[in-house]
Design a protein around this nucleic acid. Structure first.
Lengths: 178, 178
DNA sequence: TGGATTATGTCAGCCATGTTGACTTAATAC
DNA sequence: GTATTAAGTCAACATGGCTGACATAATCCA
């Protein structure tokens, strides 16, 4: 307050300094969110890229390579490098699609599931604590916030992924708890 | 609700699938949050690393190199590479510290301010829209959420940075608007 | 005063992960 | 039976992390 400047405060016209603070908080939050698994990954000779691939294959098993490329927004050559390592080292397996045998559907092995779980654990702890800290009512608001941060054209795709038992619907397979 | 499964709902014991959804939303949100400036940076031959450096120098002008290393969590060799380019190309200037002349305090030039502003613009638009989408009450909750996502030991430091007119307090200098 | 410490910079090399472009193979579509 | 599609591969390159070693100047301190 006081100060010169426009000092706004309405929901739609938030003070610019405030928005900058959110930008920085998001940066630090993401930095630390990825920090825990990064440390574990080093013990396996893997990097964050492996984590991302393993995560999505584990959480959405049976997805196609093209799905993964679409989700990660990287080239197939980039994906290829890490995916190959994960397959070679027995964390992920491929299976030809039933309807279209050109497709290589990706599945986590038991080993892959175990690693995915281990990598996710500290992140889930962190998220649980952060959501608790935000307050009981906050969950919906935070979800809406994060969804609105995503490019509008990608939101349907992301919703399909992050909403219980979608995506899988058209590719059958499980919505099994764990 | 309904559904089979364990379907918890308490604040402290959120359903695991729900937490995984938050993890993925955070991934997509951050991906797109950084996407806009990344595109602009390419036109300048810069990358995301330059953006981060320029952002913090611009928002917290007069910080020391050591501050920047601490904030970014990278080595001085990594920082050096991008900082040097930003200095050589006239986006950032250095000034020896008044009290301790070993320090090189970092300031944005007019050119640097202009680029920082241009890079921030789409991010601020996105954040404003996302906060609006989350609802008027949500701002505080989201801030608490993001703060709680940060490593506990770093929170004081981050608060000092993201809270209006702190940090600068002990290094005098401006809290000047624009 | 002079040696230790600190703030910063720099050289050299390595690694992870992104990119583009070109090309192959196998399966599907029409 | 040709065109298209899904996936894989080779090669080269860019960015931005990293470690290790060392240099310079300024400050601290005994």
């Amino acid at each position: 307050m006081t100060m010169t400047e426009e000092t706004e405060g309405s929901a739609a016209g938030l003070a610019e300094a405030n928005l900058h603070a959110f930008a920085e908080l998001l940066f630090f939050a993401y930095r630390d969110f990825t920090g825990d698994p990064d440390a574990i990954l080093k013990d396996f000779g893997f990097g964050r890229a492996h984590h991302r691939v393993l995560h999505f294959v584990n959480r959405h098993s049976g997805l196609r390579v093209a799905d993964l490329l679409d989700i990660l927004n990287i080239t197939k050559q980039s994906l290829s490098r890490v995916l190959k390592q994960l397959i070679d080292q027995g964390y992920i397996t491929q299976k030809a699609g039933a309807a279209d045998r050109r497709q290589r559907l990706l599945y986590p092995t038991d080993r892959g599931k175990a690693l995915a779980k281990r990598l996710a654990a500290p992140q889930l702890v962190r998220l649980r604590a952060a959501l608790a800290a935000a307050g009981p009512e906050a969950e919906t608001a935070i979800r809406r916030f994060l969804e609105a941060m995503i490019n509008a054209e990608d939101r349907p795709k992301v919703s399909a992924i992050t909403t219980p038992a979608a995506l899988q619907a058209d590719r059958n397979d499980e919505g099994k708890p764990s």
